[in-house]
Structure formats: structure tokens, C-alpha cells
Computed example of a mutant assay.
Amino acid sequence: DQGRAVWAYKTGGRAVREGAAAALLGTPAALTAFLTTELPVARAEDNRFAVLSSLSGAGRSVQQTASAALSAGDEAVAAFLRDGFAAPVLEDLRVSVFSALDNGGTAMKREASKALNTNTKESLETFLRTTQHTAQQEDEQAAVFAILSTASPEVKKYAERALTDGSPAAIRLFLSSGQHIARARDEETATIEQLVEIVEREGKRAKLTTDKAVAFSARAKEAAEKAKIAALEAAAEAKAAQQDVRKSAAAANNAA
């Protein structure tokens, strides 16, 4: 009996260990009572605690199956812990892999499909623990190359810097924020260049207007000079004509 109690202590949960320890330190009658009546109750308590503890981190299928077992009684809980969890765990793993398949890039879809086709707990867990991360890195690097193929100057500089670094952190930083900062700088540069073009264009237009004004002023000045000369000539001609009239009048008087 002591051997059974010791084994129960080594393999049991908290309630079983406490009961086994008390029985081993007690009388033979206490040891017998523990093994015959107290141990099943303590084991059922530990089983329920184990199932309840697993619910917070479990998937939907495991939660539903575990809740059903808890409602059905101690035997159902024990059956769930023996092997009843296997099918719902596999289902939850498949759901997680399908989620990665639906939302991932080319590499992610490829590796997720492999895991789903193998359809073992090990293949699905391996994908979720490691393979999906390497696939994501491959997809992110491909995304950087795609951006680089049509990149503006600053974006190209940032993309090449990330690819040269090559680390997943550098690639992810470029995709999450670096490319947007680079685009903003390209737009800022483009805006400055546009302003320079406008200033240069307006400067040329102002110079053309000034040149036209100068030419117009020169023509106006020339016209004024010509008008002045014409006026002087007209005045001279008028004066000459006046003198001719006087001469004619004097000649007429003399003739009379």
C-alpha cells in the first residue's frame, strides 16, 4: 500500500500529493482509506483543475470539448485527459494553419499547404512553431524586391539598405515604416523641385514681360522723337508759309 501511495504522490496533482503525504505519515488505516476512497476523489479534483487550467490558452475546439467533459462528470474529464483532447487539438492546429494560409504570401501558402496535407500533430506544430516564420521572412523579402522594382530614389535607397542588412528585423522595419518615410522624402523632394520649376518659369515670364516693356518703351520714345521732329518741321513750314503770304500781300500793295 505504501508503494501505491508513493507512486500516487509522484504522479498526482496537488490534491493527490497532499492526500498521499498525509496518508504516508498516518496510520495504516489512514493509508487504506486514502487508497480506497480519498484517492479517486483527489484525482478527480486534480483532473478538473488540469482541464480548467488549459481552457485559457486552448483553441475553440478544445474549449468546447473540455467544457462538455466538465459538464458530463469525472469519468468524462478523465477520458478527455487520457486521449479525448487529441482530436480537438488537431482541429485547432488545422484552424491556425488555415488562417496562415488565407492571410499569407506565396511562401506561407506553400508551407501551410504542405503541413495541412501531411495532417499530423507534429507537422502542424512544426509549421506553427518554426516554418511559418521562415516562410514569412521569405514573403517579406519578396515584397521588398517587388517594391524595389518600381521604387523612387529614396524608396530604392531604403529598400537596398534593408536587403543589404538581410535580417528579418531590417526587412520588417522597411515594410512597416521605412518605405513610408522614404516615400514622404521623395514627395518632399518632388515638391521642392516643382517649386524651383515654378520659380524659374515665373522668372523667365517676368523677364520676358520686362523685355517687352523695355522694347515698348523704346518704341514709344522713338515715336515721341519722331512726333517732335514732325511738329518742328510743321512749325517751320507754317512759318515759311506765313512769310510767303506776307510777301504776296506786300507785292500786291506795291502793284496797286
Rank of each mutant, 00 (worst) to 15 (best):
A5V: 11
V6G: 01
K10I: 08
G13R: 05
G13D: 01
V16F: 04
L24P: 01
L25P: 05
G26N: 00
A29S: 10
T36G: 04
L39W: 08
A44M: 04
D46V: 06
V51E: 00
S53W: 05
S54P: 05
S54H: 02
S54R: 10
S56W: 07
R60E: 13
R60H: 07
Q64Y: 02
S67A: 08
L70D: 05
L70Y: 05
L70C: 03
A72N: 12
G73H: 06
A76Q: 09
V77R: 02
A79K: 12
F80Y: 15
P88S: 06
P88D: 04
E91F: 00
R94S: 01
S96N: 13
F98G: 01
S99P: 00
S99C: 03
S99L: 07
N103K: 13
M108R: 09
M108H: 05
M108V: 15
N117Q: 10
T118P: 03
E122T: 12
F127Q: 06
R129L: 02
T131H: 06
H133V: 14
H133P: 00
E140A: 05
Q141E: 10
A143N: 01
A143C: 02
V144N: 00
V144H: 00
I147C: 09
L148Q: 03
S149A: 13
P153V: 11
Y158E: 15
A159Q: 07
E160R: 12
R161V: 10
L163Q: 09
T164L: 08
A169I: 11
S176E: 14
Q179G: 04
Q179S: 08
I181F: 04
R185G: 00
D186P: 08
E187W: 09
T191D: 07
Q194M: 09
Q194F: 08
I198D: 12
V199G: 02
E200W: 03
E202V: 11
L208T: 12
T209E: 15
T209A: 15
D211S: 08
A213L: 15
A215Y: 04
R219K: 15
K221G: 12
K221N: 13
K221T: 14
A224C: 09
E225G: 11
K226A: 13
K228Q: 12
L232F: 09
L232R: 12
E233V: 13
A241D: 11
Q242R: 15
Q242A: 15
Q243W: 11
R246K: 13
K247I: 07
S248N: 10
N254Q: 15
A255T: 13
A256D: 13
